[in-house]
Design a protein around this nucleic acid. Structure first.
Lengths: 201, 201
DNA sequence: ACGGTCATTTGATCCAGATCAATAAACAGA
DNA sequence: TCTGTTTATTGATCTGGATCAAATGACCGT
């Protein structure tokens, strides 16, 4: 019933508007999920990692596109059998509801960010929300990986690449962060960053 | 188990950050749901009408505030018993999952709007999404009620009141809409409005 | 190591929408 | 009907972030 699919970097898993026969669960790697306007403007609605589900939306067509950001593997289920499975398993359905509610809450935070926060507030929120702040690994405090490019950060935060870059530079000058490499970042002052994220500056 | 609560216009049903003992379902009227930044900036994440659920989020505290936009009535359930009821009723849980997925899809559309659309594109999208375009009532084609004030439209679309007003004026001058009264609007050219909503202008 | 491509940073200028500031309508209560 | 108050419109100006344009830096395959 489930097939394993291997994705190269940049591979397209779903395309907005295409018929949607499948539902997916991410096994490894990371995906970007986005929506496009006809003229090419893109809004990334989320990044998915191992354990996340994709394609649960209703309707016959996908309402978003999804691409691998790095080599990834996903489990693919045909929608019909998957639905049948869910029908028979209340715990599974419960888990899906729980996850979907979490995603909805995250989406509402993102609306606040997109509708009302300034560029630096958006970036601060983003950096604090990134995985990798586990107090479980105090060995590398504040270290986070940025598996995405500047263009993806920009399209997630409703900004341009240039603004993303300028904000990061400003943050570096203020000593809030440091960037050992463009895809590696250290949060030096999580406290100050948190203030920015809430617009308290 | 369920209590009926009557709300006057402007009455606060939930406040972000408060303990969340209840879950609600709207019986009549309409509510605005929003999030605030400490300095008062507001993002309205949605408008709720009869039949909608509220407060399903997980966690012990509300993560949004909700207020009545007009005299309204809601059913209030204690969270514990409500959860127990859901546990015992797979069809109920299924319905909640279905609704939550719909809400999530709507939230993703709103992210595209807030992150990437211009003022006129936002307004066009908003007007087309409003209830009242039922082909069921062809008696008043294009007529929609705006139960919300300009300030609420602005905070929903990530704009200011002034911009909302100016965009509506522009739309009137172009013959796209007409406004018999500030809270009553007629979509004269749904086709052209739809083009704007998709950024095809 | 070396060249080519792609990604990022930095600089100069522009503009959509915000802000500041009056009016002008709408509406609710006496 | 009038009167005070709230809401909406319109106008003038400002500005954060976009756009246009180089210059620098990373990274990959050979």
């Amino acid at each position: 019933m489930a097939e394993v699919v291997t994705l190269k970097t940049g591979a397209v898993l779903t395309r907005e508007g295409d018929p949607a026969p499948h539902v997916f669960s991410i096994s490894s790697g990371s995906l970007r999920v986005y929506k496009l306007l006809p003229d090419g403007r893109r809004q990334i609605t989320g990044f998915l990692f191992a354990g996340d589900f994709l394609g649960l939306a209703i309707g016959d067509d996908y309402v978003f596109s999804a691409e691998a950001m790095e080599p990834s593997t996903v489990c693919r289920f045909r929608k019909g059998p998957f639905r049948a499975l869910v029908e028979q398993s209340p715990p599974l359905e419960h888990m899906l509801l729980h996850r979907t509610m979490h995603e909805l809450a995250a989406a509402q935070n993102q609306m606040l960010l997109l509708g009302r926060k300034t560029a630096i507030e958006r970036m601060a929120s983003f950096l604090l929300d990134l995985p990798g702040h586990d107090p479980a690994r105090p060995s590398a405090p504040g270290h986070v990986r940025l598996p995405m490019k500047r263009a993806e950060i920009a399209d997630y935060l409703g900004l341009t690449i240039e603004t993303v870059s300028r904000v990061l530079t400003r943050m570096k000058l203020q000593g809030l962060i440091s960037t050992p490499s463009p895809s590696d970042l250290v949060v030096e002052r999580p406290d100050r960053l948190r203030q920015y994220a809430l617009g308290e500056v």
